[in-house]
Amino acid sequence: MSQPGIDLLIFPKIGLLIFVSVFLLSLVWIYRRGSSKTYEETSNLPFEDDAGTP
């Protein structure tokens, strides 16, 4: 059923490879230095509107 020259089963492998890289990159990204403060601030955003109401 497959096209001569293209092994279609390569696609799932490519997909998985890309995903694992995205996943690892995002792990490195969230634990970068200095991120804690940013995330602390950002995760408190839902509560800021309460303070501002006149």
């Binding site: 995903f19 995002s26 990204w29 969230i30 991120s35 995330y39 408190n44 839902p46």
Partner: peptide, 28 residues
């Protein structure tokens, strides 16, 4: 991610996890 913190009055358990959650989920 907005209404649970609002309703409990405390921030989401792990903001970091929410980022990994986001990218992995939409990617997969």
């Amino acid at each position: 991610y907005y209404f649970i913190p609002k309703a409990v009055g405390r921030p989401v358990y792990s903001y970091r996890l929410s980022i990994v959650h986001f990218w992995s989920l939409i990617f997969i």
